[in-house]
Simulated scan of single mutants.
Amino acid sequence: MTKRLFIFILLSLIFASLTAAYAADLWGEVLKDGRYYRLLDPEGNVLLETARRIFPRDQYLTAENRLYEVTKVDDENLTASAVLKEEVELKVFPWAELKRELAASLAEAEEGKKGKISLYHTHNAESYVPTDGADSINGRGGIHKVGMAFANALSALGIDVDYSEKMHLPHDRGAYRRSRETVLELLAKKPDAIFDVHRDAAPQSAYALQLGSEWITRIQFVVGRQNQNLGINRKYAQSMKKIADELYPGLVKGIFFGRGNYNQDLSPLSLLLEVGAHTNSRDAAERGIGLFSEVVDLYFYGPAAEAASGQDKTARRSITSLLFFVGLGLAIFYIINAGGFQPAWAGLKDLFRKRLR
Rank of each mutant, 00 (worst) to 15 (best):
H121K: 05
P170M: 02
F6R: 05
R38M: 15
V83G: 12
N280F: 00
G174V: 08
D58Q: 09
I336F: 10
A149K: 02
E69L: 12
L13C: 04
G310R: 12
L102M: 14
A23E: 13
K235C: 03
A244K: 00
K99T: 14
G339A: 10
I7H: 00
L48G: 03
Q59I: 15
L47I: 10
V252D: 07
N138S: 10
L61E: 05
I255F: 01
E111P: 01
T62F: 10
V146W: 01
D162W: 08
Y68V: 13
G276R: 02
T131N: 04
L330Y: 09
Y68Q: 11
G340T: 03
W345T: 09
K166G: 14
D74K: 04
V146T: 02
S127P: 06
K166A: 13
E294T: 14
K189S: 14
S293E: 04
G174M: 12
I332K: 03
L26P: 10
H278W: 01
T2Q: 05
R57K: 15
G288P: 02
R177W: 10
Q342L: 11
L184P: 02
R57S: 15
E86D: 09
Q226T: 09
F292A: 03
Y163E: 09
V73I: 06
R173V: 08
I336W: 10
A308T: 06
H198P: 04
A193D: 01
E214D: 14
V295T: 04
Y299I: 02
D196C: 06
K3L: 12
I7R: 00
S318R: 11
A304W: 00
A23V: 15
N229W: 04
D160Q: 14
A346Q: 09
D162T: 09
L322N: 07
T314R: 15
P268E: 05
K190L: 11
A80S: 05
H171A: 10
G115I: 00
S136N: 04
R234T: 14
A331V: 15
